[in-house]
C-alpha cells in the first residue's frame, strides 16, 4: 500500500516536472548545473513518462520493506492472522453448516452431531476454529476503530494489537471450556 502510494506520488511529481523542465530530458548533463529546487531531477530522468512500457521499469523497494511473517511487528501479525483466520473460517464453514443442518433436522441428527463433537480431535479442531473466530472478531473491532481514527498513532496501535492477541486467547480458553470441552 505504502509503496503503491509512493509510486503514484512519484509519477505525479515526474509528470509535473517534465512538463516544466522537459529540456533536461534531452540533455541530462544539465541536471548537474540545476538550481537546488531541481534536486529531484536526477531521479526523474530515469523513468520518463514517454517510456513505452511503464512496467518495464524495475520495481524499487525500500530496504526495510520485508513482509515475511518473521519480520512483521505485532500489528502486522494481527493483520495477517486476520486474513488467515478469515480464510480458515470460510473453508470450514461447510462443515459447521453440515453439523447445524443435522442437529436441526431430527433428534437422531442432533445426537449424531453431538457424538461427532464429542471426539477429541474434533474438539481440538473446534477450539482452533473458536480461536480463529475470536481473533477475527477482536482484530475486526480493532480495524473498525482504526477506520474511525481511534488509536491510530503508533504506540496505541501497538498496544491494541497486543490486546487483540491477549483477549482473543483468553476468550478462547473461557468459551472453549464452557462450550467445547
Amino acid at each position: 500500500m505504502h509503496i503503491a502510494h509512493a509510486d503514484m506520488l512519484h509519477h505525479t511529481i515526474s509528470a509535473l516536472y517534465f512538463s516544466a523542465r522537459s529540456v533536461w530530458v534531452c540533455c541530462p548533463d544539465a541536471v548537474h548545473h540545476a538550481p537546488d529546487g531541481a534536486s529531484q531531477s536526477k531521479k526523474v530522468q530515469h523513468d520518463s513518462p514517454h517510456m513505452a512500457d511503464n512496467n518495464s521499469r524495475p520495481k524499487r523497494y525500500a530496504p526495510w520493506y520485508n513482509v515475511s511473517p518473521g519480520n512483521l511487528p505485532l500489528p502486522g501479525l494481527v493483520s495477517i492472522f486476520h486474513r488467515i483466520s478469515g480464510l480458515g473460517l470460510f473453508v470450514m464453514l461447510w462443515l459447521l453448516l453440515w453439523l447445524f443442518d443435522r442437529s436441526m433436522v431430527s433428534a437422531e441428527g442432533y445426537d449424531w452431531a453431538r457424538s461427532v463433537l464429542s471426539g477429541g480431535f474434533v474438539k481440538l479442531v473446534m477450539t482452533g476454529l473458536l480461536w480463529a473466530f475470536l481473533h477475527h472478531f477482536c482484530a475486526g473491532i480493532r480495524f473498525l476503530l482504526l477506520d474511525m481514527h481511534v488509536g491510530i498513532e503508533l504506540a496505541p496501535a501497538r498496544r491494541s494489537s497486543v490486546v487483540v492477541f491477549v483477549v482473543s486467547l483468553l476468550l478462547t480458553l473461557i468459551l472453549g471450556a464452557a462450550l467445547v470441552w
Binding site: 442437529s103 436441526m104 431430527s106 433428534a107 442432533y110 445426537d111 468459551l175 464452557a178 462450550l179
Partner: peptide, 19 residues
C-alpha cells in the same frame, strides 16, 4: 453466545426450540 450460556440447550427439543 449469551443465549447458549443462559439456556444451555441439552437436548434436541431445547436446541431446535431456540430457532
Amino acid at each position: 453466545v449469551i443465549m447458549l450460556i443462559a439456556i444451555r440447550p441439552g437436548d434436541y427439543e431445547a436446541w431446535h426450540g431456540m430457532f
